[in-house]
């Protein structure tokens, strides 16, 4: 069959596949939205948690294991909840302190916001 190239923005699915969790990702948004504020009102600094570039030619099929993922997410979620509690405490303590906001990050799924509500 004749193969035609489609520009990147043609298929919404292809765009969503890429933009939601690839490239430069700021993890803190999860915590921010769970704390119930859209801004970080405690003073913060940006830290590089990890850098990965994939410059190998991979021929492996289906590298993503569908089984192990939910468990990893569960652990991450528990960490977030713990962090959330810590941040709430800190927020209460530093309410009167001079504050500065750095960044807010949209949740890719609404679900994460409703946890707080």
């Amino acid at each position: 069959m004749a193969v035609e190239r489609a520009a990147g923005g043609t298929s919404l699915i292809d765009v969503l596949d890429r933009v939601l969790d690839k490239g430069i990702v700021i993890d803190a948004w999860v915590r921010v939205s769970l704390v119930g504020i859209d801004l970080i009102t405690v003073e913060a600094r940006v830290v590089v948690a990890s850098i990965d570039t994939y410059l190998k030619y991979s021929e492996a099929v289906g590298q993503v294991s569908p089984v192990s993922r939910p468990q990893a997410e569960l652990v991450a979620h528990q960490n977030v909840l713990a962090e959330n509690a810590a941040l709430r405490a800190e927020l209460a303590a530093s309410k009167s302190a001079a504050t500065r906001s750095v960044v807010t990050r949209a949740p890719s799924r609404r679900r994460t916001r409703s946890i707080e509500e």
């Binding site: 700021i26 993890d27 970080i40 003073e43 913060a44 600094r45 830290v47 850098i51």
Partner: peptide, 12 residues
């Protein structure tokens, strides 16, 4: 997108 993953976090 598929070849770069830089994760940033905020530290207090």
């Amino acid at each position: 997108y598929n070849f770069v993953n830089i994760r940033l976090k905020l530290e207090r």
